[in-house]
Amino acid sequence: MSDKVKVTIDGITVEVEPGTSILNAARQIGGDIVPPAMCYYSKLEGSGGKCRTCLVKVNKGSEKDPRPMPKLVASCRTGVMDGMEVQNITSPEVIEARKGVVEILLINHPLDCPICDQAGECHLQDLSYEHGVGDTRYEFERRTFDKIDIGDKIQLHMTRCILCYRCVYVANQITDNRVHGILGRGDASEISTYIEKAIDNDFSGNVIDVCPVGALTDKTFRFKNRVWFTKPVDAHRDCPTCKGKVTLWYKGDEVLRVTGRKDQFGEVEDFICNTCRFETKNTNSWIIEGPRHIAQTSVISANHYEFAPLPVIKENQVLIEANKVEFERATKI
C-alpha cells in the first residue's frame, strides 16, 4: 500500500507511511515537537513504551473514528491513523505528565553527574533540563545496589540505570548470546548477569552506546576525560566484522575512545564491533573523514573547532561564504 496517511502533530501536518509511530512521524517534522524518548531506539525491535516520557495526547483518533483516546499514549508505540490529531507541547496535560515522569525517573537517580562519564552526552540530563523541575520532593534515601563486575570492558553503575531495556534488546538482537538481563521486580529490578558473568561478545560494546544514562560506560575511557574536552572526529577503517564507521574522540593527539556515530536523536547509525571500539585506539588505524557535527545545543560543541572557524578563514571571501553557518552560530554566542 503506497497510500500515505496524514497526521497532525501540534498543528503541523505531515504525510507518513502507514504503520509509522507517532514519534517517528514527529521526528520527520523535527524541531521542538519531537517527544523525548529514553527507552525507544528505532534500530531495536520491540523497544519503547517503558519510560513514558514520550506520552502525547491524541485529540482525534482518525478520520474514520474521531473519538479522542481516553488516556495519554506512548507515542513511540502508537501507530498513526489517517487524520489523527496529536498534541504534544501544546497540551498542558502532556507537559504536566512529562514533568511527573521526569521527577519520578530522577527520584532514585544518584545525580552523580560530576563523576559520571556520561555527563555531557546524557539523555537524562537533557531531559530533566528541558522538561523537569528544579528540585525534587523526594526526601528518602536513594536506592542502591550491590556492585557487580561485568567484565574488563564495560562498567555497570546500576544506581544510574533507568531500566530502559535497550541493552537487553541489543544483546538479543545484535549479539549472538545474551548473558545479562533484568533480575528482580519493581524498584528492585536491576540489570545484571546471572552469576557475575562477563559480558563478552563481538558486539557487546554497543550496550554502551545505547545506554541513555551513565549506567553502562566504557571502562577503557573511565575517568580519562570529560566528553566536552574531547573532540569528535568521524573516521572509518576496513573492519572484517562491522562496517567500521565510527566517531573518534580526541584529546590532543590521543584517541581516548571510539563510539558509533550518533544522530540527532542519540541513536547510532551503525553498530560497531568491540575490536573497533576498545582495541583500535591509534590514529594510524583509521582514515579520518572530518570533524563530527555536534548539535549546537550540546555541551560538547563548546570548544569544538567545527564551530569556531580559524582566523585565516575570516579573511578569505570564498571561505567566509562556505562557512556562513558557522559564522552565524559563532556570533550568536
Binding site: 517503558k50 513514558r52 519520578i104 525517573l105 527520584i107 533507568i162 531500566l163 521486580r185 519493581g186 524498584d187
Partner: peptide
C-alpha cells in the same frame, strides 16, 4: 503495590515506592 510492581515502566516502578515511603 510497591512489592508487586513489575518494574517495567517508570511511573509505577518508582512512584509506588515513593507513595509507600
Amino acid at each position: 503495590y510497591h512489592h508487586e510492581s513489575c518494574g517495567q515502566c517508570s511511573p509505577c516502578r518508582e512512584g509506588t515506592g515513593w507513595m509507600e515511603k
